[in-house]
Design a protein around this nucleic acid. Sequence first.
DNA 1: ACTAAGATTACCT
DNA 2: GGTAATCTTAGTA
Length: 195
Amino acid sequence: MPGEPRRAFPADRLARVVPEVARLLLGAVLESTVGGVLTSGVIVETEAYLGPEDAASHAATRSITERNRVMFGPPGVAYVYRSYGVHWCTNVVADSDGVGGAVLIRGLDPLEGVETMRTRREGRLPLTAGPGRLSQALGITGELDGHGLDRAPLRLVHGVAVPDEAVTTTPRIGITRAVEAPLRYLVRGRPGVSR
DNA sequence: ACTAAGATTACCT
DNA sequence: GGTAATCTTAGTA
């Protein structure tokens, strides 16, 4: 039924090791009502960022800083950071409270609110392929860092099942350390995949 | 205190 | 293919 609220993404699935969560988030829906307007998309590309054992992760440091602190908190919370001083990037915190780890959302297939996305993106394409682009399209900024994803204005909700045959695993993009680790997950052939 | 690098993107030649 | 934009963190002193 149209208009019926979507089911929340099951919280227990986020309290697992980060690579497993990155795989499980494919097909889930990220739903924003920032500014009172609904924009949403199906997650089609993710990357896992682990704890101290992962040199590419913001949680690799021994010190907890203002930027990375929510990575060490409970799962199911948004970790939003500024990339290159310019773009916002959105993550879903995974694993147990006290363990650093998060899943970077790298690509969405647009679902609802495409006109609003076009406005926020100022006409640029693609709308939601790439972590900075999708965050802009959904109106996500640093104000949502630490926000619980079980409630408005930014929710993680139940979506579609993605079979293993449709999933490809590759090394992560745009990093210079731990470049080999196959921690990027994508749904083959979807337009929302960043590359 | 100073400097370099970074989980990116857009625009230039 | 090259580089600017712009802010946080980490390394060096």
